[in-house]
Amino acid sequence: MKINPVSANFRRRSGALLCALACSLALNACSPVAPAPATSADRPDGANSASSVAASHTPVPDTPTTTAELPVLNIDDQHSQITIIVRRGGLLARLGHDHLILVRQLSGSVDQHNNRATLQFRLDEMQVDPPELRLAAGLSPQPSADAIAGTRHNMLQRTLDAQRYPLVLVQAERHADGHSLQLALTLHGVTRSLRVPANIHSDGRSLSAEGSFTILQSDYGITPFAVMGGALAVQDQLELHYRLQAH
């Protein structure tokens, strides 16, 4: 019988393909097949993938607290204060007194997420020459009650114009170095930017900050008080010491 060459070639190719297919099936039968990932619909309890991870034996580390989770803190005016030392000057300075001004009625808050704080106080709530703080600051002798009253009147009415500018506003931002604050201080209707040293401690639930710096009254459009043509005057420079607590 005569064999058609085309049919013979076809049979040879078909046999090769069937052999390759059989080998492939045999190899797959010996290899484990990875199961398809289950969906929530496939699970009888309807658990999602997050529940599956939680149910595994691999421990999941605690998520650290981020700054976004830190609460906003309020200034504690019972444990916060600003003291301002005003020095005497002029040719007759020996006839006058250095003065200490105390600020206790502070209000404001600390935004820990953005490392910013705001606080303010009223000028007419400042105290003049509290005896215990004058003594601690090394200022003596203690002025008389009449002298303190006169100092307060001149400070609020003639120097600071407290009726027109009753509030002092401070906006603070923690500097990247962690040891200073960038302030925007608004006094007498004028805002100035300055960087001041700060010793800051925080645990996320409370914060404390303290430091000292100086300002010039003339930088805020204030003319220092003077009498007798400047023979007895208040120095332009003021010394500020602050201690703040927030909870």
Rank of each mutant, 00 (worst) to 15 (best):
P5M: 08
S7E: 06
R11T: 14
R12I: 04
R12N: 09
A16H: 01
L18K: 14
A20N: 01
A20C: 03
L21K: 07
S24Y: 06
C30E: 08
C30V: 12
P32F: 02
A36G: 02
A38V: 14
D45P: 09
A47Y: 11
A47N: 12
A50K: 15
A50Q: 14
A54Q: 11
A55D: 15
P61E: 08
P61V: 07
T65W: 00
T66Q: 00
T67N: 00
V72T: 12
D77I: 02
H79I: 04
H79L: 05
Q81A: 13
I84C: 14
G90A: 07
L92R: 07
R94K: 13
G96K: 03
H97I: 10
H99A: 11
I101K: 04
L106P: 01
G108R: 07
Q112R: 06
Q112W: 03
Q112D: 06
N115D: 02
R116M: 15
A117I: 00
L123I: 15
E125V: 02
P130L: 13
E132S: 08
A136K: 10
A137Q: 13
A137N: 12
G138Q: 14
L139M: 08
S140M: 03
P141Y: 04
S144E: 02
A145R: 13
A145G: 08
D146S: 07
G150K: 14
H153T: 11
H153C: 07
H153I: 10
L156E: 12
T159V: 11
L160E: 00
L160R: 01
Y165V: 01
L169V: 15
V170K: 02
Q182W: 03
L187I: 07
H188P: 03
T191F: 14
R195Q: 15
V196F: 09
V196M: 07
A198H: 12
I200W: 05
G204H: 04
R205Y: 05
S208F: 05
F213W: 00
P224L: 09
F225H: 04
G229A: 00
G230A: 01
G230T: 02
L232P: 14
Q235C: 09
Q237P: 03
L240G: 12
Y242F: 15
R243W: 03
A246D: 02
A246E: 01
H247D: 11
